[in-house]
Design a protein around this nucleic acid. Sequence first.
DNA 1: ATGAAAGCGCTAACAG
DNA 2: CTGTTAGCGCTTTCAT
Lengths: 346, 346
Amino acid sequence: MKSHQITIKDIAKILGISVSTVSRALKNHPDISETTKSQVNELAKKLKYEPNALALNLRRNKTNTIGVIIPEIVHHFFSSVISGIEDVAYDQGYNVVVCQSNESYEREVINAQALLSNRVDGVLISVSKTTLDFNHFRNFTNQEIPIVFFDRICPEIMTDRVITNDEGGAFLATEHLISIGCRKIAHFSAPQNLLIGQGRLAGYLRALKQFQIPYDPNLILYCDSREAAIEKTIDFIKSNAEVDGIFAVNDSTAIAAMQMIQKMGKNVPDDIAVVGFGDGPITLIVNPQLSTVEQKGYEMGLEAIKLLLHKIENETAVDSFQTKVLTPLLIARESTDRLKKGSANV
Amino acid sequence: MKSHQITIKDIAKILGISVSTVSRALKNHPDISETTKSQVNELAKKLKYEPNALALNLRRNKTNTIGVIIPEIVHHFFSSVISGIEDVAYDQGYNVVVCQSNESYEREVINAQALLSNRVDGVLISVSKTTLDFNHFRNFTNQEIPIVFFDRICPEIMTDRVITNDEGGAFLATEHLISIGCRKIAHFSAPQNLLIGQGRLAGYLRALKQFQIPYDPNLILYCDSREAAIEKTIDFIKSNAEVDGIFAVNDSTAIAAMQMIQKMGKNVPDDIAVVGFGDGPITLIVNPQLSTVEQKGYEMGLEAIKLLLHKIENETAVDSFQTKVLTPLLIARESTDRLKKGSANV
DNA sequence: ATGAAAGCGCTAACAG
DNA sequence: CTGTTAGCGCTTTCAT
């Protein structure tokens, strides 16, 4: 049986004053006498009074809560984004509720409904891979609850967005491979129905074109996970013995590819140089350390929440939506370092 | 300007019936005629009516929300715990609000207050490293809001707890090193003011004693992070050349130690075998793959939320608190595999 | 300087 | 079968 939560009513009764006086005293309203104020505040402290956020929010029709829907919290990238979001949200007095879709459309719909029911002031969303219909997101915009999409955006809904310049990052990665002498560069790519798959392939192709390296469709392998890379790399390299560089769509694919290459007795970077995408913590742990494209999760979180809070607090603003594009940097490490002979290798 | 959120009042007005009828129709109350029910439900759907959880929660004095306070979401272990928590919470119709303390006491206090204000039905807490005073947690118990501590528990407060058997895990790790022939086993340990530091050292010592290996205090090195291991390992091994095995307090320390050992031209596992603790994803990526003690984050989340929901839904239960101890398993991989010569090594 | 009363959205006696 | 009413905790006119 839950003990009675102490309310302003209790304080009022004990002090023999009205609830409105208590309410005002608590908010330091100028009309209230110093005596009353101190009486109220002391008692409140003594009784460990905590304002009931539910009642407050109901009254104000504002929850100071922002909802986040992400695919999976266990991915380093997404947990970094959350850290960015929380850091500024807390500073501005907002709470953050994080929901995971687990890459499931159904769960995403449920998450959206829960956030809607809880009347969050705004939402930050990175769309699940399995989501093809976006009406559950439209419910937010219909209620004029602002959305900011980040990383995995929804192209159909007009809102603010924060994305990584995948094409540019992929260009940098490929350009880097070319600059160290690679001429037969493979791309381990993600499915083309995903925007990152498209963007990173496009950047790869643009770099080839710009440096007049002939494009060979055989060098594009659909392979975007550690498991896939373990399964496919060796056969791929055997059938394409001339490959001297690989740009993989993400770090774990790149690392697995690298490890399979090493298993074949080849040297990274001297025989085949490898570049990933993401710059997760594993890039530093693997040997040789992985060159990669920096995907700034924390910064993405910051930008997304800033856009959202701006929308929330300037509701009258004209409907204008911006897309922030984070341009990633190339981080060159040992897996593409063909000069320094000291780099450890199998 | 937020568009009017549609309420049961709106539905009532449109249909020319009372709000209570609408309320009852929506909950499929037996008293209501089928005609009315379908009218109400259709209109609700058409208008995209969403119940206002705030009002509901205020009324019921129950939020169906559970709060989680963790040190850092970016740690794989903690994000696994959250996944476990969420999976069962959602099944039972609870929402989860995750707060990060960032290992800061002040932030932890703020988080606790926010959860209190939002009248969560219960809390799951893993204590920040910098927390020495626990009164902010007592506010929960004072209000009879159940707490379950997990992993980093608060010894001062009587509640349910879920912990890993650190001592047992450390014993297994050390025993394993002994079983493959190690006789001079170093322990890279965490500060002894942390419970994990104590427990893992104790397990190490018990294994030595049980197998009659003399204890050498010089073989205990305070070193519990990648950075520390990079800095200290080489000197340590130089001054203790006889070391043939290392049990490190966590995986990243173990991996960094392993890499420094390799840098010295020594072989892992043949010269020095290494065992970590945690079984994060990096253990599979490093070469050789790291033997480690499995720390079951997801299971810990499951157990913690189950205990909590039980307390929440059986409020009348006698005050009895249980501590669930998860006994970790040893995962033997290449870093301790001295038989299989095929294991890749520098 | 303080109080009374209405209302945020919803539910649940109680009354027909 | 349906409506009326009170109240969850709080703020805020409007009185006094």
